[in-house]
Simulated assay, not measured.
Amino acid sequence: MTKQVLDAQQMQHLQELGMKLDYDTLYRYVKFEDTDWLLKPFSDLNIIGISFKYIPAYTLQDVLDALPKCVSKDGCTWAASLYIDFENDRIAYGNTDRYGFEVYHEIMIEKDLIDAAYSMLCWAIENKFVETNKNE
């Protein structure tokens, strides 16, 4: 696993989806007037007199914390298990019972777990399992 944080485009996409971003992160993406997004530690942002924008840079833990603890299926809400299945290279929501794991929704892990978790978070937002600015 090489990727430690979501990239700036992924963070912007979460913002566009209406997700309420938590700015209490160790790293932030900073954009000065004529630059691309730069990843900076929060402690380096004591810049006075320079115009800049910033967005948080989520780690895998931040993404996992943002995923819903329950999802609805067929009109019923149940506490779903978020299942990271390295054997089958997937991250999935499902229900575990005595017969095994029933998959409700899965995302394949192509390269980095953080990207699969991000895709799962986007799916959860788009299916209204995560409260956003757009559905208030």
Rank of each mutant, 00 (worst) to 15 (best):
M1R: 11
Q4T: 07
V5F: 15
L6V: 09
L6R: 04
L6N: 03
D7A: 05
Q9L: 10
Q9P: 00
M11V: 09
Q12L: 14
Q12D: 03
H13Q: 13
H13R: 14
L14E: 02
L14G: 05
E16K: 15
L17I: 04
G18Q: 03
L21D: 05
D22Y: 05
L26W: 01
R28Y: 12
Y29A: 02
F32T: 02
E33T: 11
T35R: 08
W37N: 04
L38W: 02
K40W: 06
F42T: 15
S43D: 11
D44L: 09
L45K: 00
L45G: 01
N46K: 12
I50W: 04
S51L: 12
S51I: 12
F52M: 06
F52R: 05
F52Y: 15
K53G: 05
K53T: 08
Y54T: 09
Y54F: 15
Y54D: 10
P56A: 10
A57P: 03
T59Q: 08
T59K: 12
Q61K: 13
D62P: 01
D62W: 00
V63A: 08
V63M: 05
D65W: 04
D65Y: 08
A66L: 13
A66W: 01
L67P: 11
P68G: 02
P68N: 07
P68C: 08
C70N: 14
C70E: 14
V71K: 09
S72T: 15
S72V: 11
C76L: 12
C76W: 10
T77I: 08
W78G: 13
A79Q: 14
A80C: 14
A80D: 05
D85Q: 02
D85W: 01
D85N: 13
D85R: 02
N88E: 10
A92L: 03
A92N: 04
Y93L: 03
Y93K: 01
N95I: 11
N95C: 05
T96I: 12
D97C: 10
R98Q: 10
F101S: 07
V103M: 05
V103R: 06
V103S: 09
E106P: 00
I109Y: 01
I109D: 04
E110A: 13
K111H: 13
D112E: 15
D112N: 14
L113W: 05
D115I: 04
A117Q: 01
A117H: 03
S119W: 02
M120H: 00
M120R: 07
L121Q: 10
C122N: 07
C122G: 02
W123G: 04
A124E: 04
K128C: 09
E131A: 11
T132H: 09
T132V: 09
K134G: 01
E136F: 12
E136A: 13
E136I: 13
